[in-house]
């Protein structure tokens, strides 16, 4: 058993960039445990996607093409990858930590009596074996994980945690014939759809004021709206605010909402759960206002104010208005 297998992901005819980050993580892992990096692509007919994937490196690209893989299903992916892993016996299997990986990878790992080490942010070698770092308690603590069981290890890596590398080599494409029949697949997926046309493009905003649970109730939203207006910023929110219907879903920043990278991201009453941070940590400047000095948002903030947002935000709005008027 050797080598590291990376399961690549494509959606709507394009590769997910996170797949290349997963290849980078696999490269680090192969440095520690030895062996080559291999990649795997699944689909109905991959067409030009294969050559593009191969150009991102690895010793070999296994292409798994089957009519039952044309649309993603957890059963189809689990069965096909189980067959590939049993045949080639990699020491490690690496995924990008996407919604799709979260949907099927735990099931696949269970087939091998293993547990997916999910949402890893870094890895290192210790005594010749890999140690994986992942966050817990909503990002307040880190934890070092090791694999203790026999059999292949399964790891998924967080978006942005590993830097995509330019590959100097091209993988040899090797088709892998999978045996699947329709009867094995019980879930029937429909076409992906969007709820309503997105009218707010937060991705294009250069200034964003974003609000989280700390605002306490819907009636308090104007407190941050006024600050956004004073700055000329778009108003955004973390998931719970949109879940409660206090702001429309299209203003949500995070893994299930929009990914933004404005010049200024001013987070008000947002603790900074991982799902939120992945959507905004690329911002040029981050300001956090929060009552809890240990909130994970301060890990990514350039400027922080610890205190009561209901005192600070109105004072800030006033100061911004004054500075702009002057």
């Amino acid at each position: 058993m050797s080598g590291v297998l990376v399961v690549l992901e494509h959606r709507n005819g394009a590769w997910a960039r996170m797949s290349w980050e997963a290849i980078a993580a696999a490269g680090q892992l192969a440095q520690i445990c030895g062996g080559n990096v291999y990649t795997a692509a699944l689909g109905g007919e991959l067409g030009a996607l294969s050559a593009e994937a191969a150009s991102h490196g690895g010793a070999k690209l296994h292409t798994l093409e089957h009519a039952q893989l044309a649309q993603y299903t957890p059963e189809g992916y689990t069965l096909a990858l189980e067959e590939l892993i049993r045949k080639h016996q990699p020491a490690w299997v690496v995924f990008a930590h996407t919604y799709r990986t979260r949907d099927f990878a735990p099931r696949l790992a269970t087939r091998f009596q293993q547990v997916l080490i999910a949402d890893v942010i870094s890895l290192r070698g210790e005594d010749g074996a890999p140690v994986f770092v992942r966050q817990m308690m909503q990002g307040k603590l880190n934890a070092d994980y090791r694999k203790t069981g026999d059999g292949p290890g399964f790891v998924s890596v967080q978006a942005g945690a590993f830097r995509e590398e330019v590959s100097s080599s091209t993988a040899a494409i090797e088709p892998f014939a999978v045996t699947l029949d329709a009867g094995q697949i019980r879930t029937k997926p429909g076409e992906p759809f969007r709820e309503s046309a997105q009218t707010v493009d937060l991705g294009a905003a250069s200034l964003i004021v974003s609000v989280g649970r700390g605002i306490k109730e819907q009636d308090n939203i104007p407190v941050v709206q006024e600050l956004a207006d004073a700055l000329g910023a778009e108003l955004a929110a973390s998931r719970p605010i949109c879940d409660n219907g206090w702001l429309p879903m299209e203003r949500q920043v995070g893994s299930s909402g929009q990914t933004v990278a404005p010049k200024l991201y001013l987070a008000v009453g947002i603790s900074g759960a991982i799902q939120h941070l992945v959507g905004m940590k690329g911002s040029k400047s981050i300001v956090a206002i929060n009552k809890d000095e240990n909130a994970p948002i301060f890990e990514v903030a350039d400027y922080g104010i610890v205190g009561d947002l209901f005192e600070i935000v109105p004072a800030l709005t006033e100061a911004v208005r004054k500075a702009k008027g002057a």
């Binding site: 934890a143 070092d144 994980y145 090791r146 069981g149 922080g304």
Partner: peptide
């Protein structure tokens, strides 16, 4: 038997220097 184990938990190292006002 556990297939994965936690070896240690700890406060994350700050990657960014935050200026607290």
């Amino acid at each position: 038997a556990a297939a994965i184990t936690v070896e240690r938990i700890y406060a994350p190292e700050k990657k960014k220097q935050t200026q607290i006002l």
